[in-house]
């Protein structure tokens, strides 16, 4: 039996990833720089990844870790496209302030 399963209850992992997720939500809500907002989304993805990996290890089921692998794949693709769009926005508006991006309103 793995040392960790005996010593650490799964609740600790749940609390840790809940706290990380909420910090990510906090960042998305209070920051206006679009790059930092993207980074906060990455932090939220990582909180979910940690939870999936913890449950996968505790239940000896490899599928959770495969799921984490696919989330990482999608996050990498998302970061590449998102940053490309951000550079394009910066070229047009000379700023990465998300409050300027309300052209679709009305």
């Amino acid at each position: 039996m793995l040392e960790i399963i005996r010593q650490i209850p799964i609740d600790y992992y749940v609390w840790l990833s809940t706290a990380l997720f909420c910090i990510g939500v906090f960042g998305v809500l209070i920051r206006r720089n679009a790059i930092v907002v993207l980074m906060c989304v990455e932090l939220m993805l990582n909180a979910v990844n940690l939870l999936l990996a913890a449950f996968s290890t505790y239940l000896s089921d490899a599928q959770g870790q495969i799921m984490v692998f696919f989330i990482m794949v999608v996050a990498a693709a998302e970061a590449a496209v998102g940053l490309g769009i951000l550079v394009m926005i910066y070229r047009n508006t000379k700023s990465t302030d998300i409050s300027l991006l309300d052209k679709l309103r009305n």
């Binding site: 399963i5 990996a53 000896s60 870790q65």
Partner: peptide, 11 residues
């Protein structure tokens, strides 16, 4: 429900 026959090398 931690399974009895667990596999430590799952990762």
């Amino acid at each position: 429900q931690i399974p009895e026959a667990e596999n430590p090398g799952v990762g």
